[in-house]
């Protein structure tokens, strides 16, 4: 019964992965793609080229910064909102949940046109609101003129889209926390913060860990949000993450070997970045199978 699964996974994941590794050791360009010329094995040259290139460290630093900031914001705000959900009365909770679910349901690709429209230089309502509130110097503020403000927009879009899943998962975990435990802690004189750290946090720990891991992985892999927005402005390469850079080298510059090497390095780094959390998830899966 698992045979079809294994076959298909091998076909669409394992073979491509092996192929990726192979290509990363080759010179594979337009000549090979359509010219039918034989590939040339270059050993580790592509990797040397990646690791000695300043572009790599720039892209890596950009990726790490983005992941850390966006995940911290997502999880921090997620905890705050999950807490808020527990505090409000029922009708407000329903409204809040409905609005979160609606946002969650938005296809990520739709977020692009929406946000482009919100920050449109002439008619963007966000620009209008922020200008009226005195937060923007001009109504026609161009967010993508500077990489810093451009990244603010990208981060806002990603966090906006990622929040609902995090809030709803954490809220579900929090409601499962036994009211008796909270009550007992309160009777022992614990304040709200103490109750949170001593009772709630341990109880939601595993959910929090999974949600954080998934957020790291998802935000590391963010592609469309950056790819589709950065063409608004100048200084395009200020928006190259490892993913974007690999894409550009492969599909724009037709240097598939180099692109594959970047992608592989990126995969390994992601594994390392999320290793601790992933190990926890894997271990809980393994434990459960051992029993």
């Amino acid at each position: 019964m698992v045979a079809p699964l294994i076959t298909v996974l091998a076909l669409v994941l394992l073979v491509p992965l092996v192929r990726l590794i192979m290509v990363s050791g080759q010179e594979y360009g337009l000549d090979q793609l359509i010219g039918g010329k034989p590939v040339r094995w270059v050993g580790l040259d592509n990797f040397v080229k990646v690791l000695t290139s300043q572009d790599f460290y720039d892209a890596l630093w950009r990726t790490v910064k983005f992941v850390v900031v966006s995940v911290a914001l997502t999880i921090g705000l997620g905890l705050a909102l999950a807490h808020l959900l527990a505090k409000v009365s029922a009708p407000v909770r329903v409204f809040l949940l409905l609005s979160l679910v609606t946002v969650w349901a938005m296809p990520p690709i739709i977020a692009m046109p929406i946000w482009r429209w919100l920050i449109d230089q002439r008619f963007g309502v966000l620009n209008y609101g922020l200008y009226k509130a005195g937060l923007l110097p001009t109504r026609t503020f161009n967010w993508f003129a500077e990489p810093f403000t451009g990244w603010m927009v990208i981060t806002a879009i990603v966090v906006w889209g990622a929040l609902p899943f995090v809030v709803i998962s954490l809220h579900a975990a929090m409601t499962a926390v036994s009211a008796d435990h909270v009550e007992a802690a309160r009777l022992d004189g614990a304040g709200a913060w103490r109750v949170f750290t001593a009772v709630t946090l341990p109880a939601i720990r595993s959910t929090l860990l999974i949600v954080t891991t998934l957020s790291i992985i998802w935000n590391y892999r963010v592609f469309a949000q950056i790819w589709l927005l950065r063409d608004i402005g100048a200084n395009k390469d200020s928006y190259y993450t490892l993913g974007i850079w690999s894409y550009v080298e492969s599909f724009s510059n037709k240097d598939f070997g180099y692109g594959a090497a970047i992608a592989l390095v990126s995969v390994v780094l992601l594994a390392a970045l999320s290793a601790v959390a992933v190990r926890h998830v894997l271990r809980s899966a393994a434990d459960e199978n051992g029993s």
Partner: peptide, 22 residues
């Protein structure tokens, strides 16, 4: 089970190159 979980770590940018070539 572990393979199924771990496989989800593979970023689409990594797959897109070999998938396109194949």
């Amino acid at each position: 089970v572990i393979l199924v979980i771990a496989i989800q770590m593979v970023p689409i940018e990594g797959l897109i190159i070999p998938m396109y070539l194949m």
